[in-house]
Write a protein that binds this DNA or RNA. Structure first.
Lengths: 229, 229
DNA sequence: ACATACGTGTGGGAA
DNA sequence: TTCCCACGCGTATGT
């Protein structure tokens, strides 16, 4: 990994177009051929370019032009003055991957395994049940045996209501479900989202933050009638 | 900006939880109190923490613990060995902002100024027209004088159909519009999005990539009847 | 501070 | 490969 501190200006052309005026910034060039231009604020680079770009350096009167190019994009850095240029040796192990926990997909699994948490007497039917408008996260039946299309989110916003509306609509029209309604299961359902859900006749429940402690998964193993705690 | 190369492992707790195993990586600490943990691949940090986090360093037997904390989140880095630690002086100017071109908001302005591009005889009525379900990007009238709720996107996916459906629904119900329909104007309308739009009775048009050349904006100034070229 | 929406979003998984 | 959706999305803007 190479870090260059320089007085530079930047032009990007590709998916969009951007300009950066002349200023002192840090360029980070990695061994996979990616570049980022950082200033002293924030975690995101001001400009960047994905891996495998080719660097060509040309000299002009007032500056060196560092041009990073791929097939479709180009990042052109005018280097007016270079203050430092360091090569930082990093071992690169392909195993160096972030391990995530508490993701939506895990929440989904957990709710599928604990249908009671979204409603008394609810039972699991299927995960990723296909509809004409995309797969429903979880399909359940309620205590009366009516189908429920469950949309799982960590944070539910307006789009979640739209999604579940789409699924219910598609299940009724394309799949011949006569009795089916929608439900949002989320850690957090925003106020406006609650309003829209209400209007659309979509139910919603909040899952307690403690879901990851596994409270619902602990089953008594000492009795003949295992009981959800 | 401080760059530390070290053999370290990382644990993040906050919105989710993540772990990184022990490896040699670069820590970037900026003057706004943000941190990022980089390996030698990609433009995105493996871990990071936004601005204004407080760093406290404590010594353990095998490592120093660098703990970056905010009210709600915490990034804990076990530093087993530090290979280098450089302070890179960057001037920080608040004016150092990326200037973008070809954004959605510019596309929106352009379409508002060139309503003909989405339909023969269309006329502009209003931008950001408020509805009970949020503001419509552009409100127009078609050649017959019927209202059209236009949703602008660079790339239109399923959510765009939902949005414009919501607006039309709200305009009819809350605002007393009797004649109104929805339209998506985008550079790219994805296949499934076209299908769903069809089903919902939402129209869509693609804006040519050349919109930024200003073809529609060039107006003859030599005649009494300025004419769109 | 909260809520909403854009982004050169990025990344991953499935068709 | 393209298409779709989640993300500790980040970041800016309006309230």
């Amino acid at each position: 990994m190479r870090v260059v501190v320089a007085d530079c200006s930047v032009i990007y052309t590709g998916r969009g177009d951007t300009k950066l005026p002349r200023a002192v910034r840090a360029l980070i060039v990695k061994s996979d051929g990616s570049v980022s231009v950082h200033n002293d604020r924030g975690t995101k680079p001001l400009n960047y370019m994905g891996k495998d770009c080719a660097l060509t350096i040309t000299s002009e009167e007032d500056y060196d032009m560092w041009s990073f190019d791929t097939r479709k994009e180009s990042l052109q850095v005018k280097m007016y003055q270079i203050y430092s240029d360091s090569l930082l040796p990093l071992e690169r192990s392909p195993e160096d991957v972030l391990e995530r926990d508490g993701t939506e997909s895990q929440l989904q699994e957990w709710i599928a395994a604990n249908p009671e948490c979204v409603g008394e007497g609810f039972t699991f039917v299927s995960r990723e049940y296909p509809t004409g408008a995309g797969p429903v996260d979880i399909l359940m039946k309620d205590a009366e045996g009516v189908f429920v299309a469950v949309e799982v989110k960590r944070v539910a916003m307006l789009g979640a209501v739209d999604q579940v509306s789409r699924y219910v609509e598609a299940l009724k029209r394309d799949s011949g479900f006569t009795e089916v309604y929608g439900l949002i299961a989320a850690l957090d359902v925003r106020p406006k989202t609650q309003d829209l859900a209400q209007k659309r006749g979509i139910n919603w429940v909040t899952v307690p933050r403690s879901w990851r402690n596994g409270d619902f998964e602990v089953v008594s193993e000492d009795t003949d009638n295992p009981e959800i705690i």
